[in-house]
Design a protein around this nucleic acid. Structure first.
Lengths: 133, 133
DNA sequence: CCGTATCCTTAACGATACTG
DNA sequence: CAGTATCGTTAAGGATACGG
């Protein structure tokens, strides 16, 4: 077994309790994707970001940003003014990952017509037996 | 406002209750990523896939596959043999999305050294005040 | 304005048992 | 083998209120 295969094992996302899997969940999870994608548009302050990511609660935004900051993907800059301003932005690593997420989002959006057609087919093929009228 | 901006609005993942956001969650969610990534290696039968995606329960695998099948990303082929064999594989759309997910996974794995260093920094800078000894 | 802390509700999840 | 059904547990999530 060569070095490359070795590294693949210890970092394999398919293995549970793997560090890379945890990071992947932060990044690809429900709110992580949207936060990173929004920040790839530029720096945001807390409440502006909250408005951008429609539907996120204060609590979840706070938790999401903390996780991403801990992973070194998001930078948090505090300006000690009154009232205080806090700006969130992407680190270089964050920008690389966010870039890939944008590609994913655009790909998904491009597939939406096909996806919605498939959903309609699936739903009509399985529901039409309502206890047999 | 041109056509392009219009389409972007109706399909904007940043809007809650948006169809593309729901699909993105199926695809990028905890189990969706792993299921699609595994299937990009080739067709899998139910229990083989369950073993490949370490830690997933029968219930979650079943639910995940149903959602992805409904979205037209996974195909389910039943062979009426005894015992029955069911093969799961990617549709063309599923392959396109899975390909992008693999890129994401590999990118994340590549950033892991940097990420883990950031985590260590974050953890040491914030915990070392345990009630002040 | 930027959050954290709390409470409470909901839904995700896992384990088990059972059917086609 | 390939699931569905049910149940109990846990964690995620939302709303509110308060502190920095």
């Amino acid at each position: 077994m060569g070095m490359d295969e070795m590294e693949e094992l210890v970092a394999d996302v398919f293995a549970r309790a793997c560090t890379s899997r945890a990071v992947l969940e932060n990044v690809a999870g429900k709110w992580g994707v949207l936060a990173l994608a929004a920040l790839s548009e530029g720096a945001y302050r807390f409440n502006a970001l909250r408005r951008r990511v429609d539907g996120i609660s204060e609590k979840m935004l706070s938790q999401t940003l903390q996780a991403l900051e801990r992973d070194g993907l998001v930078r948090r800059d505090v300006q000690a003014t009154i009232p205080p301003k806090v700006e969130y932005s992407l680190t270089p690593a964050g920008e690389r990952i966010a870039g890939k997420l944008i590609e994913l989002i655009e790909l998904v959006e491009g597939e939406m017509p096909e996806v919605m057609a498939a959903q309609r087919r699936y739903d009509t093929e399985r529901t039409p037996t309502p206890t047999r009228a």
